[in-house]
């Protein structure tokens, strides 16, 4: 299952090594270049970093299992936006008017249900039609975004519920609510992928679909479940984020799919499927967020971030190819 232990170890550890390098670099460079007198590795700064990583991070965890499965999901940004609209709008529906704060779990439930249904739809289409996930979810990205705009036009959807805001801004043991959700999701998905039959089968399907079919694994349902999980996580990400901000623009979440895929690939998950790890993805998410914050800290323009992340992504791809010849396999789409 794990050929090339040295290269595997290098790749597994690489993202954490990269994070340490980033921390050292920005701490040292910050001493000379930073405009603020606060240290970069300030505790509050790091706690904020975790919190800000959460929206992309929660989706990236889901993207990891879909990519391990040999698929991809480009519709997560649109799912994110649509769930946010459902969350904020449902709290203002007249039928829930008498419930007071009892509306919160209902709104959360509706939003999460939306994400899961959209994911299930993607999964069902991939399963039943045999059209590649790249195309199915590319179409869905347009379609779901269209639904967001049809819902409320170009107006933002806004509703602030202070109980919810307090919940989202709360800190428990120093960590923000969003961070706890990121940790919980990572732990749960790690468990699913490493300790359950579904996880084993997902790896097997991504590694060699034909072999998996011959081994009697039902490929379709597993793929559909993974799409449901990523849909659920995209809406969970929206629920956590918009509980606090209380206002969603119809454009929100655009290009999230690209950020998420960048984080997952930085974490070492293969586009070809069959390999990857949830924890490394978490590393990829943190690395990107550190880069963003760090570049801001040393006074670089925010626009430099895009440039640097793009170049790092290509460099990682190149290094990965050199380290592991398996990377020469072409993308299966």
């Amino acid at each position: 299952m794990e050929p090339g232990t040295l290269s595997t170890f290098l790749k597994r550890g690489a993202i954490w090594g990269f994070i340490v390098l980033e921390l050292i670099f920005f701490s040292v460079a910050g001493e000379y270049l930073s405009l603020s007198d606060k240290a970069f590795m300030d505790l509050d700064n790091m706690l904020l970093l975790f919190k800000q990583s959460a929206p992309i991070g929660i989706i990236a965890i889901g993207m990891t299992i879909v990519m391990i499965n040999g698929n991809i999901d480009l519709s997560v940004g649109a799912t994110f936006a649509l769930s946010a609209v459902v969350l904020l709008d449902s709290m203002t529906w007249p039928i829930f008017a008498g419930l007071g704060d009892g509306v919160i779990p209902i709104a959360w439930g509706l939003a999460l249900m939306t994400g899961m249904l959209l994911g299930a739809l993607n999964g069902l289409i991939v399963w039943k039609t045999g059209v590649d996930a790249f195309i199915v979810t590319l179409g869905a990205m347009l379609g779901y975004r269209g639904l967001v705009f049809m819902y409320n036009g170009e107006q933002p959807t806004s509703h602030l519920n202070w109980t919810l805001v307090d919940f989202a801004e709360a800190q428990f043991l120093g960590l923000h609510t969003a961070t706890w959700f990121l940790i919980a999701v990572t732990a749960a998905v790690w468990f699913v992928m490493n300790r359950t039959v579904h996880g084993r089968n997902a790896y097997a399907i991504g590694d060699n679909r034909t072999a998996a079919i011959n081994a009697g694994i039902r490929v379709g349902p597993h793929m559909m479940i993974n799409f449901m999980i990523i849909g659920f996580l995209a809406s969970l990400s929206a629920v956590v984020f918009y509980s606090e901000s209380g206002s969603v623009n119809p454009n929100d979440g655009e290009l999230y799919e690209l950020w998420v895929i960048t984080a997952v690939v930085l974490g070492g998950t293969k586009l070809t499927g069959g390999a990857g790890s949830v924890l490394s993805t978490l590393g990829g998410v943190l690395a990107i967020q550190l880069l963003r914050k760090g570049l801001g800290h040393i006074g670089a323009d925010t626009e430099t971030v895009n440039l640097v992340i793009g170049l790092i992504l290509i460099a990682v791809l190149f290094l990965d190819r050199q380290l592991n010849l398996k990377g020469r396999e072409e993308l299966r789409i």
């Binding site: 626009e303 895009n306 440039l307 992340i309 793009g310 790092i312 290509i314």
Partner: peptide, 11 residues
């Protein structure tokens, strides 16, 4: 590669 270039060229 082109995903990375998307980001890099935007920057």
């Amino acid at each position: 590669v082109t995903l990375g270039m998307l980001s890099a060229i935007h920057g």
